[in-house]
Design a binder for these strands. Sequence first.
DNA 1: TTACTATATTCGTTTATACTCATATATTAT
DNA 2: ATAATATATGAGTATAAACGAATATAGTAA
Lengths: 128, 128
Amino acid sequence: MDLVNVMKALGDETRLRMLNLLNKKELCVCEIEELLDINQSNASRHLNKLSSAGLVEYRKSALYVYYKIKDEATAQFPFLVSFLHDETRKLTKCVLDEERLNQYIDSGITCDELKDGRLCFKDNKEEQ
Amino acid sequence: MDLVNVMKALGDETRLRMLNLLNKKELCVCEIEELLDINQSNASRHLNKLSSAGLVEYRKSALYVYYKIKDEATAQFPFLVSFLHDETRKLTKCVLDEERLNQYIDSGITCDELKDGRLCFKDNKEEQ
DNA sequence: TTACTATATTCGTTTATACTCATATATTAT
DNA sequence: ATAATATATGAGTATAAACGAATATAGTAA
Protein backbone atom coordinates (compact mmCIF):
# COMPACT_ATOMS: atom_id res chain seq x y z
CA MET A 1 0.00 0.00 0.00
CA ASP A 2 2.20 2.82 -1.17
CA LEU A 3 1.17 6.42 -1.61
CA VAL A 4 2.05 6.76 -5.27
CA ASN A 5 -0.05 3.75 -6.25
CA VAL A 6 -2.91 4.99 -4.13
CA MET A 7 -2.80 8.32 -5.93
CA LYS A 8 -2.64 6.61 -9.31
CA ALA A 9 -5.70 4.59 -8.35
CA LEU A 10 -7.48 7.81 -7.42
CA GLY A 11 -6.60 9.44 -10.74
CA ASP A 12 -9.44 7.94 -12.75
CA GLU A 13 -13.03 9.09 -12.93
CA THR A 14 -14.56 5.63 -12.92
CA ARG A 15 -12.60 4.60 -9.84
CA LEU A 16 -13.50 7.81 -8.05
CA ARG A 17 -17.15 7.09 -8.78
CA MET A 18 -16.74 3.57 -7.42
CA LEU A 19 -15.13 4.77 -4.23
CA ASN A 20 -17.82 7.37 -3.83
CA LEU A 21 -20.52 4.69 -3.86
CA LEU A 22 -18.52 2.26 -1.74
CA ASN A 23 -18.10 5.03 0.78
CA LYS A 24 -21.86 4.88 1.25
CA LYS A 25 -22.45 1.15 1.10
CA GLU A 26 -20.82 -2.18 0.43
CA LEU A 27 -21.79 -3.25 -3.10
CA CYS A 28 -21.39 -6.24 -5.36
CA VAL A 29 -19.88 -5.99 -8.81
CA CYS A 30 -23.16 -6.22 -10.70
CA GLU A 31 -24.67 -3.43 -8.63
CA ILE A 32 -21.73 -1.22 -9.50
CA GLU A 33 -22.10 -2.08 -13.17
CA GLU A 34 -25.71 -0.95 -13.18
CA LEU A 35 -25.31 2.13 -11.02
CA LEU A 36 -22.31 3.44 -12.95
CA ASP A 37 -23.56 2.14 -16.29
CA ILE A 38 -20.30 0.42 -17.21
CA ASN A 39 -19.72 -3.05 -18.54
CA GLN A 40 -18.76 -6.06 -16.49
CA SER A 41 -15.20 -6.23 -17.72
CA ASN A 42 -14.41 -2.66 -16.81
CA ALA A 43 -16.11 -2.91 -13.47
CA SER A 44 -14.05 -5.91 -12.51
CA ARG A 45 -10.80 -4.42 -13.76
CA HIS A 46 -11.20 -1.10 -11.99
CA LEU A 47 -12.20 -2.82 -8.77
CA ASN A 48 -9.11 -4.95 -9.09
CA LYS A 49 -7.00 -1.79 -9.37
CA LEU A 50 -8.57 -0.34 -6.27
CA SER A 51 -7.97 -3.60 -4.48
CA SER A 52 -4.33 -3.79 -5.60
CA ALA A 53 -3.78 -0.28 -4.31
CA GLY A 54 -5.16 -1.39 -0.96
CA LEU A 55 -8.14 0.93 -1.06
CA VAL A 56 -10.90 -1.68 -1.06
CA GLU A 57 -11.40 -5.23 0.12
CA TYR A 58 -13.94 -7.85 -0.88
CA ARG A 59 -15.77 -10.89 0.39
CA LYS A 60 -17.37 -13.59 -1.71
CA SER A 61 -20.87 -14.73 -0.96
CA ALA A 62 -22.48 -17.27 -3.23
CA LEU A 63 -22.01 -16.01 -6.78
CA TYR A 64 -21.48 -12.44 -5.69
CA VAL A 65 -18.38 -10.51 -4.72
CA TYR A 66 -18.99 -7.61 -2.36
CA TYR A 67 -16.56 -4.73 -2.28
CA LYS A 68 -16.11 -2.18 0.45
CA ILE A 69 -13.61 0.48 1.40
CA LYS A 70 -10.82 -0.96 3.49
CA ASP A 71 -10.55 0.42 7.01
CA GLU A 72 -6.77 0.14 6.89
CA ALA A 73 -6.71 2.48 3.91
CA THR A 74 -8.39 5.37 5.68
CA ALA A 75 -6.32 4.60 8.76
CA GLN A 76 -3.07 4.77 6.85
CA PHE A 77 -4.09 7.70 4.64
CA PRO A 78 -6.31 9.94 6.77
CA PHE A 79 -6.75 12.52 4.01
CA LEU A 80 -8.96 9.94 2.29
CA VAL A 81 -11.75 10.55 4.79
CA SER A 82 -12.25 14.20 3.92
CA PHE A 83 -11.34 13.52 0.32
CA LEU A 84 -14.09 10.96 -0.17
CA HIS A 85 -16.59 12.96 1.79
CA ASP A 86 -15.99 16.41 0.36
CA GLU A 87 -14.39 16.19 -3.06
CA THR A 88 -16.40 13.53 -4.86
CA ARG A 89 -19.59 15.49 -4.32
CA LYS A 90 -18.16 18.20 -6.54
CA LEU A 91 -18.31 15.80 -9.47
CA THR A 92 -21.64 15.82 -11.26
CA LYS A 93 -21.44 12.14 -12.06
CA CYS A 94 -20.80 11.25 -8.45
CA VAL A 95 -23.87 13.15 -7.36
CA LEU A 96 -25.99 11.38 -9.97
CA ASP A 97 -24.49 8.04 -8.96
CA GLU A 98 -25.46 8.66 -5.39
CA GLU A 99 -29.03 9.51 -6.38
CA ARG A 100 -29.17 6.25 -8.27
CA LEU A 101 -27.84 4.38 -5.27
CA ASN A 102 -30.44 5.94 -2.99
CA GLN A 103 -33.20 5.13 -5.43
CA TYR A 104 -31.98 1.55 -5.62
CA ILE A 105 -31.79 1.19 -1.85
CA ASP A 106 -35.22 2.73 -1.35
CA SER A 107 -36.76 0.43 -3.93
CA GLY A 108 -35.85 -2.64 -1.90
CA ILE A 109 -35.20 -4.75 -5.00
CA THR A 110 -32.38 -7.29 -5.26
CA CYS A 111 -29.27 -6.87 -7.38
CA ASP A 112 -30.62 -9.52 -9.76
CA GLU A 113 -33.73 -7.45 -10.27
CA LEU A 114 -31.62 -4.36 -10.72
CA LYS A 115 -29.67 -6.10 -13.44
CA ASP A 116 -32.91 -7.16 -15.12
CA GLY A 117 -33.80 -3.52 -15.51
CA ARG A 118 -36.61 -3.43 -12.95
CA LEU A 119 -35.60 0.02 -11.85
CA CYS A 120 -36.03 3.03 -14.12
CA PHE A 121 -33.62 5.64 -12.83
CA LYS A 122 -35.01 9.11 -12.48
CA ASP A 123 -31.92 10.70 -13.98
CA ASN A 124 -31.28 10.45 -17.69
CA LYS A 125 -27.61 9.76 -17.24
CA GLU A 126 -27.07 8.01 -20.57
CA GLU A 127 -28.41 10.99 -22.47
CA GLN A 128 -26.08 13.49 -20.84
CA MET B 1 -9.08 22.79 -12.35
CA ASP B 2 -10.99 19.55 -12.16
CA LEU B 3 -10.60 16.89 -9.52
CA VAL B 4 -9.71 14.02 -11.84
CA ASN B 5 -6.86 15.94 -13.45
CA VAL B 6 -5.63 17.04 -10.04
CA MET B 7 -5.54 13.43 -8.91
CA LYS B 8 -3.76 12.36 -12.10
CA ALA B 9 -1.17 15.04 -11.45
CA LEU B 10 -0.71 13.71 -7.93
CA GLY B 11 -0.25 10.15 -9.16
CA ASP B 12 3.43 10.44 -10.01
CA GLU B 13 6.39 10.21 -7.67
CA THR B 14 8.39 13.01 -9.27
CA ARG B 15 5.48 15.42 -9.09
CA LEU B 16 4.77 14.49 -5.48
CA ARG B 17 8.39 15.24 -4.68
CA MET B 18 8.11 18.59 -6.45
CA LEU B 19 4.99 19.54 -4.55
CA ASN B 20 6.61 18.48 -1.32
CA LEU B 21 9.47 20.91 -1.88
CA LEU B 22 7.26 23.68 -3.21
CA ASN B 23 5.15 23.28 -0.10
CA LYS B 24 8.20 24.47 1.83
CA LYS B 25 9.51 27.14 -0.48
CA GLU B 26 9.08 28.78 -3.85
CA LEU B 27 11.77 27.37 -6.15
CA CYS B 28 13.08 27.93 -9.65
CA VAL B 29 13.35 25.13 -12.19
CA CYS B 30 17.09 24.69 -11.89
CA GLU B 31 16.88 24.38 -8.14
CA ILE B 32 14.32 21.63 -8.53
CA GLU B 33 16.52 19.87 -11.06
CA GLU B 34 19.41 19.75 -8.62
CA LEU B 35 17.44 18.92 -5.50
CA LEU B 36 15.52 16.08 -7.14
CA ASP B 37 18.41 15.05 -9.36
CA ILE B 38 16.38 15.02 -12.55
CA ASN B 39 17.18 16.52 -15.94
CA GLN B 40 15.98 19.85 -17.22
CA SER B 41 13.49 18.46 -19.70
CA ASN B 42 11.72 16.31 -17.14
CA ALA B 43 11.67 19.06 -14.58
CA SER B 44 10.04 21.46 -16.99
CA ARG B 45 7.51 18.95 -18.23
CA HIS B 46 6.39 17.79 -14.81
CA LEU B 47 6.08 21.37 -13.63
CA ASN B 48 3.98 22.05 -16.67
CA LYS B 49 1.67 19.20 -15.71
CA LEU B 50 1.31 20.55 -12.20
CA SER B 51 0.59 23.96 -13.65
CA SER B 52 -1.99 22.62 -16.10
CA ALA B 53 -3.76 20.85 -13.27
CA GLY B 54 -3.90 24.16 -11.44
CA LEU B 55 -1.75 23.02 -8.54
CA VAL B 56 1.13 25.44 -9.01
CA GLU B 57 1.72 28.87 -10.47
CA TYR B 58 4.88 30.60 -11.62
CA ARG B 59 6.46 33.98 -12.05
CA LYS B 60 9.33 34.84 -14.33
CA SER B 61 12.24 36.83 -13.02
CA ALA B 62 15.23 37.46 -15.26
CA LEU B 63 16.21 34.10 -16.70
CA TYR B 64 14.54 32.16 -13.94
CA VAL B 65 11.02 30.81 -13.54
CA TYR B 66 9.89 30.45 -9.96
CA TYR B 67 7.18 27.94 -9.12
CA LYS B 68 5.02 27.84 -6.03
CA ILE B 69 1.89 26.09 -4.87
CA LYS B 70 -1.21 27.95 -5.92
CA ASP B 71 -3.35 29.28 -3.11
CA GLU B 72 -6.49 28.64 -5.11
CA ALA B 73 -5.61 24.95 -5.30
CA THR B 74 -5.56 24.41 -1.56
CA ALA B 75 -8.63 26.61 -1.26
CA GLN B 76 -10.57 24.56 -3.77
CA PHE B 77 -9.24 21.19 -2.60
CA PRO B 78 -8.76 21.45 1.15
CA PHE B 79 -7.61 17.85 1.49
CA LEU B 80 -4.39 18.98 -0.19
CA VAL B 81 -3.28 20.76 2.96
CA SER B 82 -3.15 17.67 5.14
CA PHE B 83 -2.12 15.58 2.17
CA LEU B 84 0.98 17.63 1.47
CA HIS B 85 1.82 18.00 5.10
CA ASP B 86 1.29 14.45 6.31
CA GLU B 87 1.56 12.01 3.43
CA THR B 88 4.65 13.09 1.55
CA ARG B 89 6.76 12.70 4.67
CA LYS B 90 6.02 8.98 4.53
CA LEU B 91 8.00 8.77 1.29
CA THR B 92 11.71 8.21 1.83
CA LYS B 93 12.63 10.27 -1.20
CA CYS B 94 10.57 13.22 0.00
CA VAL B 95 12.32 13.18 3.34
CA LEU B 96 15.73 13.14 1.64
CA ASP B 97 14.63 15.88 -0.73
CA GLU B 98 13.66 18.03 2.22
CA GLU B 99 17.02 17.48 3.86
CA ARG B 100 18.69 18.59 0.66
CA LEU B 101 16.51 21.65 0.52
CA ASN B 102 17.37 22.58 4.10
CA GLN B 103 21.05 22.08 3.44
CA TYR B 104 20.77 24.28 0.36
CA ILE B 105 18.93 27.01 2.20
CA ASP B 106 21.35 26.93 5.13
CA SER B 107 24.34 27.17 2.81
CA GLY B 108 23.21 30.52 1.51
CA ILE B 109 24.51 29.85 -2.00
CA THR B 110 22.70 30.93 -5.17
CA CYS B 111 20.93 28.58 -7.57
CA ASP B 112 23.74 29.18 -10.08
CA GLU B 113 26.25 27.96 -7.54
CA LEU B 114 24.02 25.02 -6.71
CA LYS B 115 23.96 24.07 -10.36
CA ASP B 116 27.75 24.36 -10.52
CA GLY B 117 27.99 21.65 -7.89
CA ARG B 118 29.18 23.86 -5.06
CA LEU B 119 27.14 21.93 -2.58
CA CYS B 120 27.96 18.32 -1.67
CA PHE B 121 24.77 16.85 -0.30
CA LYS B 122 25.12 14.86 2.87
CA ASP B 123 22.85 12.10 1.61
CA ASN B 124 24.05 9.64 -0.99
CA LYS B 125 20.82 9.73 -2.90
CA GLU B 126 22.23 8.66 -6.24
CA GLU B 127 23.65 5.49 -4.73
CA GLN B 128 20.39 4.36 -3.20
C1' DT C 1 -24.81 -34.69 -14.27
C1' DT C 2 -26.00 -30.17 -17.21
C1' DA C 3 -27.37 -25.42 -17.54
C1' DC C 4 -26.96 -20.92 -15.77
C1' DT C 5 -24.86 -16.84 -13.72
C1' DA C 6 -21.42 -13.51 -11.51
C1' DT C 7 -16.95 -12.45 -11.75
C1' DA C 8 -12.18 -12.65 -13.39
C1' DT C 9 -8.99 -12.81 -16.99
C1' DT C 10 -6.88 -13.04 -21.70
C1' DC C 11 -6.23 -10.95 -26.19
C1' DG C 12 -5.75 -7.34 -29.27
C1' DT C 13 -6.13 -2.53 -29.92
C1' DT C 14 -6.03 2.22 -28.88
C1' DT C 15 -4.70 6.03 -26.26
C1' DA C 16 -2.02 8.28 -22.80
C1' DT C 17 2.24 8.88 -20.19
C1' DA C 18 7.14 9.34 -19.24
C1' DC C 19 11.48 9.64 -20.94
C1' DT C 20 15.89 11.13 -23.78
C1' DC C 21 17.93 13.91 -27.02
C1' DA C 22 17.86 17.81 -29.70
C1' DT C 23 16.24 22.33 -30.78
C1' DA C 24 13.75 26.74 -30.03
C1' DT C 25 12.90 30.86 -27.23
C1' DA C 26 13.86 34.55 -24.35
C1' DT C 27 16.66 37.02 -21.15
C1' DT C 28 21.16 38.58 -19.60
C1' DA C 29 25.97 39.73 -20.20
C1' DT C 30 29.80 41.28 -22.99
C1' DA D 1 25.70 43.07 -32.37
C1' DT D 2 27.27 37.99 -30.30
C1' DA D 3 27.61 34.63 -26.61
C1' DA D 4 25.85 32.35 -22.76
C1' DT D 5 22.15 30.58 -19.90
C1' DA D 6 17.40 29.06 -18.09
C1' DT D 7 13.48 27.23 -19.60
C1' DA D 8 10.16 25.30 -22.85
C1' DT D 9 9.02 22.39 -26.50
C1' DG D 10 9.33 19.07 -30.56
C1' DA D 11 10.39 14.41 -32.23
C1' DG D 12 10.87 9.74 -31.40
C1' DT D 13 10.46 5.80 -28.45
C1' DA D 14 9.13 2.83 -24.77
C1' DT D 15 5.99 1.75 -21.30
C1' DA D 16 1.64 1.79 -19.15
C1' DA D 17 -3.31 2.32 -18.98
C1' DA D 18 -8.06 1.75 -20.62
C1' DC D 19 -11.23 -0.50 -23.32
C1' DG D 20 -14.42 -4.10 -25.87
C1' DA D 21 -15.05 -8.67 -27.02
C1' DA D 22 -14.39 -13.22 -26.02
C1' DT D 23 -13.23 -16.87 -22.90
C1' DA D 24 -12.24 -19.07 -18.34
C1' DT D 25 -13.59 -20.01 -13.61
C1' DA D 26 -16.37 -21.02 -9.86
C1' DG D 27 -20.56 -21.25 -7.52
C1' DT D 28 -25.67 -22.24 -7.90
C1' DA D 29 -29.83 -24.42 -9.55
C1' DA D 30 -32.27 -27.91 -11.96
